[in-house]
């Protein structure tokens, strides 16, 4: 439960980062939504859209933003709820398991979509 486990080591950095990444994610969601609504969706159109370099860069940014946003959020939720009061004397162990689980998931959702995005135009 040391602040070191938090992404930016400072509450201020986490706070700013969480808001900045939220803006990136909102912009990305709007962009993709607009594309979805613009014309019928098929694989050729999808590959063409996400295959362009600007779109790949934007998607990469969104994936990084999602990972940072999710980690700060999950870390915060864990340090709120996984407490001695509810979990007894072994709460620190449970918190560690929870955080490792979250870190693994965040890592998965970071690496997997990045592999997809950069493998698309092979």
């Amino acid at each position: 439960m040391t602040p070191v486990a938090s992404l930016g080591r400072s509450g201020l950095a986490d706070f700013v980062l969480q808001r900045a990444t939220a803006v990136v994610l909102a912009a990305f969601a709007l962009c993709v939504l607009g594309w979805f609504l613009a014309a019928p969706v098929n694989h050729a159109r999808l590959a063409a859209f996400f295959g362009t370099l600007p779109m790949r860069a934007f998607t990469t940014l969104a994936i990084l933003a999602l990972a940072a946003h999710a980690w700060i959020g999950m870390w915060t939720v864990g340090t709120d709820y996984v407490r001695r009061h509810y979990f007894g004397r072994r709460h620190a162990l449970y918190l560690a398991i929870y955080q490792i689980g979250c870190a693994a998931l965040v890592f998965l959702y970071l690496v997997w979509p990045l592999a997809v995005v950069w493998g698309v135009a092979r």
Partner: peptide, 9 residues
């Protein structure tokens, strides 16, 4: 007050 708990909780 800058740490993740004092204010930012």
């Amino acid at each position: 007050l800058e740490d993740p708990f004092s204010v930012f909780r």
